[in-house]
Amino acid sequence: MKYYAPATIEEAIGVLTSEPGTRVFAGATDVVPQMRSGRDLGPGLIDLKKIERLSAVTRQDDMWVIGAAVPAAQLTANADLSHDLPGVVEAAGLIGSDQVQSRSSLGGNVCNASPAADSVPALVAAGARAVIASGDGTRTILVEELPVGPGRTSLAPGEFVVEFEIDRPAGATADAYLRLIPRTEMDIAVVGAGVQLTMDGGTCTSARIALGAVAPTVVRVPDAEAAIVGTTLDDAALAAASAAASAACNPIDDKRGTIAYRQHVAGVLTKRAIGIAADRAQNPGTANGSTH
């Protein structure tokens, strides 16, 4: 295995083109366990962390641009980002321990395409887009279009994610992410729920809800969104959203949770995450519900 550390996107594309089968990585927090499991990772690994654009976080007037290789620890330490997108930040902050946080990136978390990836439901709920580079230039797609199955993405050979764009919330809009694991830290989600909603005078005027670890890929739940839009988030609306979330699941049985458990908890987390997001939207600047 050969290690490459290109300084520019063009250089990285050059290696990908000249050495077919090489793969890109940022934190290697998924790559190393995969190597130990005997997975063939090809002839070389390209370290993206030395490319400036992939390691930058910038706030523009209308959106945040987060480099694909930025370690999660930099996101949780960014007060402005946490203020605008607390759900995305808390999802990033849940990817492993401090040791892992020094390495793990949104790009890696999304492109590893684990159904349980914490950042994905939060990014989808926040409407995030991925900017993808290849020899043909760049293209931009919604994050939910990236994973297509466990371990598989829609990226073509030679493509990699450069950065994520996330619109800054306007008005009384906020997001939240909750996940359930059997322990307190350092585990893979049994269920994850991302919510972003907008409130107007006590009424929910728009919502995006996404679930992780309950299907081969992240699940948007339009029925749960419809159940709360136009309501004051009363008990009946929350119960309907909860039921819709449970119904949207297509999970598996494994050692972390059964199908019935995942369906049930998807409903519970959806209900609780809506509560947190609504609270944040109506009381900007509070960090209620943040685990960090």
């Binding site: 366990p33 059997p182 322990r183 307190t184 830290e185 050692k255």
Partner: peptide, 23 residues
């Protein structure tokens, strides 16, 4: 610990969860 048909299925600390300092 999950043992199926004579095989340990979760031989890592990512799948076999001993208590951490927060648990």
């Amino acid at each position: 610990l999950v043992v199926i048909d004579g095989r340990v299925m979760n031989p890592r600390f990512s799948g076999y969860l001993i208590p951490g300092i927060g648990d």
